[in-house]
Write a protein that binds this DNA or RNA. Structure first.
Lengths: 229, 229
DNA sequence: AATTATAAGTGTGTATTTTACATTTCCAAA
DNA sequence: TTTGGAAATGTAAAATACACACTTATAATT
């Protein structure tokens, strides 16, 4: 048995990014209107092709940056999609990546200029190729992530209310949570700093703002938690 | 912005398989002695290249079959490894797959004939390229899997003792478990059928043999469990 | 026939975690 | 001063996880 690299097939390798954001109400994904064939004019994930000289992580970052202006986003590899006819134009495989970002940190105009747009998970249009499947898989992954590591740092503004954090968990887990139990669980993790400051927009009483204690948060991400729903 | 598939780079895509087995004592992996350059003579995972006409799942199965004779093994995709110089001969990426099998179901001679060999996890030789890293990642994945879904069906003989099942969990989790608590937990899952039959090889008293109730087992795999260690 | 050696088999009380659940408080606006 | 509305807060009951040690069945030995 002798192998010869030259005899082997080479393939086009796409990288597609599922970018999750949160706007204090819904979990959203960032989509882009495709301006080239095939499927021109349809909505798709942000994607592009791997170049010979870069790793997949590099490619994901480059592609995201070129299509949205987002820089230095931490993305995680999700899965390789390889159905033969997934792209009707030509045989390509695609490696899906996903990321969590705070919508407000990112320039709305820049996004528009690239004809990208945020969609609530349940209101997202149907996507090209197997991109809907990619999104579904990413949601499941995100959900598992939310119960095994703390979540929110990348998705919330620097200062946030307990309510916002709870809404975030609820939208990721797609489940209503009890306010008191939620607070008890989050406090048990010991990752929040309660500020003096209040947010007065949501009620007359106002609600206290919190920040993450990044060090403790990171330690919890590292070690893993159990956040039973 | 116009895209043109023809201008994009194509790459070699390898598929490497981490095959886990269990021999009633240790968790093992199947390795193969590489008989072609580069790194000829060194141990490596079972691997090959994706062909244009197949999916990654197909490729993983074809490669495993050709190098070991194992047929119709269920494998799960693990991760795509893409460091630039991971293969010194040429730029390749590799999608790792992992599988669990019952060592005894598979023909020893066939394996030898392909110069494959089972190694205990802790006694495995150093592997080529980034294969050690792949194995590490697969072990972590397997460990997570073991606490979120029942495990053992693919790894144990049809009839097995409680002790064997416990040993399996212990070797995956790399942790000693209490006999009584283990039995209580497993029984709570309600996936085992206790047989009349005893295994007399391990002690004078003999120990009862069990089988999985495949339907209940599968339902538990589907839904997920919590097996807290 | 009696003894011995060995792994198998078995249960309970305690601690911890999870869950369910309702009232009071604060403040702006009227 | 009153009112409306979200924010804040605690506890008891239930379920789960954990620690822990002695008895039993049988083959082998004498």
């Amino acid at each position: 048995m002798l192998n010869n690299y030259n005899a082997e097939d080479k393939v086009l390798l796409a990288v597609d990014c599922i970018i999750f954001g949160f706007d204090q109400e819904d979990l959203k994904i960032l989509l882009i209107k495709r301006d080239f064939e095939p499927e021109k004019g349809k909505w798709s994930l942000i994607g592009g092709f791997l170049k010979m000289t870069e790793t997949l992580d590099d490619a994901a970052n480059r592609i995201l940056y070129h299509l949205t202006g987002f820089d230095k986003i931490y993305m995680e590899q999700l899965y390789n999609f390889s159905k033969i006819d997934r792209d009707p134009a030509e045989r390509t495989l695609s490696v899906a990546y996903y990321a969590l970002i705070n919508i407000e940190d990112h320039d709305e105009k820049l996004i528009e200029q690239y004809s990208a747009k945020w969609f609530s998970i349940d209101e997202a249009p149907s996507l090209i190729f197997d991109h809907n499947q990619m999104v579904q898989k990413a949601i499941l992954r995100l959900r598992r992530r939310a119960i095994s590591k703390p979540i929110g740092f990348e998705l919330l503004p620097e200062k946030f209310t307990m309510r916002q954090l709870q809404k975030l968990y609820e939208s990721i887990l797609d489940e209503e949570l009890d306010k008191r139990n939620f607070i008890n669980k989050i406090n048990a993790l010991d990752i929040l700093v309660k500020l003096e400051e209040k947010d007065m927009t949501s009620s007359r009483k106002g609600s206290y703002l919190y920040q993450f204690d990044k060090e403790k948060y990171d330690r919890n991400v590292e070690d893993g938690i159990t956040f039973k729903i």
